[in-house]
Simulated assay, not measured.
Amino acid sequence: MWVDTDTAEGPELVLQGKTADAATRSACGQDSPPADDETVIRIPVRMVDQIRKACDAAEAAGTQL
């Protein structure tokens, strides 16, 4: 996971994870169908601290742009 600050829309979190299985993708699609350029991934709970840090970094970068 990292923060990409070189996007026209402002900072974005870039996540890498395992592709969700078909059943999970289907269940997610019922609540929020992914757009053509989206997918459903799984992020292990052990990544929560890194996600928080990346969110903080993205938020801080957004105020500087």
Rank of each mutant, 00 (worst) to 15 (best):
M1C: 12
W2S: 15
V3T: 14
V3Q: 08
D4P: 12
D6M: 12
D6T: 15
D6Q: 15
T7S: 04
T7C: 03
T7V: 00
T7M: 08
T7W: 01
A8N: 12
A8W: 06
A8E: 09
E9L: 09
E9S: 14
P11C: 09
P11V: 00
P11H: 00
P11W: 01
P11K: 02
E12Y: 09
L13E: 06
L13T: 07
L13D: 02
V14H: 06
L15P: 00
L15Y: 00
L15M: 05
Q16F: 12
Q16A: 10
Q16H: 13
G17A: 11
G17F: 07
G17L: 10
G17P: 07
G17T: 12
K18I: 03
K18V: 14
K18M: 10
K18Q: 14
K18G: 07
K18H: 15
T19W: 13
T19M: 04
A20Y: 01
A20D: 02
A20P: 01
D21N: 14
A22S: 15
A22Y: 09
A22C: 00
A23L: 05
R25W: 04
R25K: 14
S26L: 08
S26V: 08
S26H: 13
S26P: 03
S26E: 14
A27S: 09
A27F: 06
A27L: 10
C28V: 08
G29Q: 15
G29F: 05
Q30S: 14
Q30C: 07
D31E: 11
D31I: 03
D31L: 13
D31C: 13
S32Q: 12
S32K: 02
P33V: 05
P33W: 10
P34S: 04
P34G: 04
P34W: 01
P34Q: 06
P34R: 05
P34L: 01
A35D: 02
D36K: 13
D36V: 10
D36P: 06
E38C: 01
T39Y: 09
V40I: 09
V40G: 03
V40T: 08
I41S: 09
I41Q: 10
I41Y: 04
I41G: 07
I41P: 03
R42W: 05
I43Y: 01
P44W: 02
V45T: 12
V45H: 06
V45D: 02
R46T: 07
M47S: 12
V48K: 11
V48I: 09
V48G: 02
D49T: 02
D49N: 08
D49Y: 08
Q50G: 13
Q50C: 04
Q50K: 10
Q50A: 15
I51V: 11
I51L: 15
I51A: 11
I51W: 00
I51C: 06
R52P: 04
R52I: 14
R52L: 13
R52F: 10
R52E: 14
K53G: 06
A54Y: 00
A54L: 03
A54N: 04
A54G: 01
A54T: 06
C55R: 05
D56N: 11
D56K: 12
A57V: 04
A58Q: 02
A58H: 03
E59W: 09
E59F: 08
E59Q: 07
E59G: 14
A61R: 03
A61M: 00
A61C: 04
G62E: 00
T63V: 04
T63S: 00
T63W: 09
Q64E: 12
Q64F: 03
L65P: 01
L65Q: 13
